Amino acid sequence: MPQTRLDTARIRAARRVIDPVFLDTPLYRCEALEPRLGCAVSIKLETANPVRSFKGRGTEVVASLLAGSGSRAVVCASAGNLGQALAWSGRRRGLDVTVVASRFAPAVKLDRIRALDARLELVDGDHESARERAAAIARHDGIRLLEDSLDIETCEGAATIGLELVDAAPSFDAVLIALGGGALATGVGHVLKELAPDVEVICVQPLGAPAMTHSWHRRRVVTTDSADTIADGVAGRFPIPAVLDDLLLTADDAVLVQETSITAAMRILLDHAGLVVEPSAALGIAAILEDRDRFAGRHVLTIVCGGNVDMDAYHRWVGTSPVHGP
């Protein structure tokens, strides 16, 4: 296959520096979902770790390299999950971590970043504003700027999920991957294209935040003026050219789903799999709901990539009522 920026040998090496708490997450066939979706469904559960998302795989690689080089400070922009993961990995290695986030990010994610001893700076505006501020801090302070998806460590950390899928001797026909900045899709996609090329790699993005999907289809960077989706973890507006180049080599398709399908998928995962997930993690199930004929009779795997969700918002989205104690 044409070469991406990723390297399978480095991905295998990444497993040796990632804390085992992030590795070998549950992978199982979820038969309870199948009558509702009309296809066989397996789940890779990336919420079963201390930061409740896949992001810890990449930040472990970054933090290990920083600690090994003697560099002690790092800054990143985050919609919430990357910041938590970097704070966790940095605290473990004695790093000085600064996270820049939109003040409109879910409070549960911001609170967790603070609890992990990172310095948190909030900005008005969206994630792109946070990216600009993080870059400014890095320049001013002369410290490492971690850019999710652009920095190859984040992609290759996420790619270790792909190794685990392949090691499980997959019987699935397609993998549905949430698409935001692209680290998860390019990382897992790279491994599957190299080691399990018959598996179809399908990226899924909200209709309200379609920049990377439009870019994939047009084979050039397409930006948007705004993003309007409850799936805050994938709500970028400015695709990174190098990441798009990788995505063009690793994805077989990129699809958009409606907000109503995302909330329906969250409810299905709650009712039939017992999983409370954030909207980004439900994108794969939403894609099945919107195109049942495409997946009928197939074995589909979806990566449940995050479980950091504001519970009040969650109850509104899925139509449940919070349970209050006495």
Score class of each variant (00 low, 15 high):
L145H: 07
L146P: 02
E147D: 06
D148V: 14
S149W: 00
E153A: 08
T154S: 04
C155W: 08
T160I: 11
I161K: 13
G162D: 15
E164L: 12
V166P: 13
V166L: 11
D167K: 14
A169D: 08
S171L: 02
L176S: 04
I177D: 01
A178H: 04
A183M: 00
L184V: 06
A185C: 06
V191P: 08
L192N: 08
L192T: 13
L192S: 11
A196K: 11
A196P: 08
P197R: 08
P197K: 07
P197F: 11
E200M: 09
H214W: 15
S215W: 07
H217N: 09
V221R: 09
T224Q: 11
D225N: 12
S226W: 05
A227K: 00
D228M: 06
T229H: 06
T229L: 13
A231L: 08
D232I: 10
D232S: 14
G233Q: 10
A235G: 03
F238V: 07
I240Q: 13
I240D: 11
L248N: 00
L249E: 13
V255P: 01
V255E: 02
E259M: 05
T260P: 09
T260G: 12
T260M: 09
T263Y: 05
A264Q: 13
A265V: 11
M266W: 15
I268F: 00
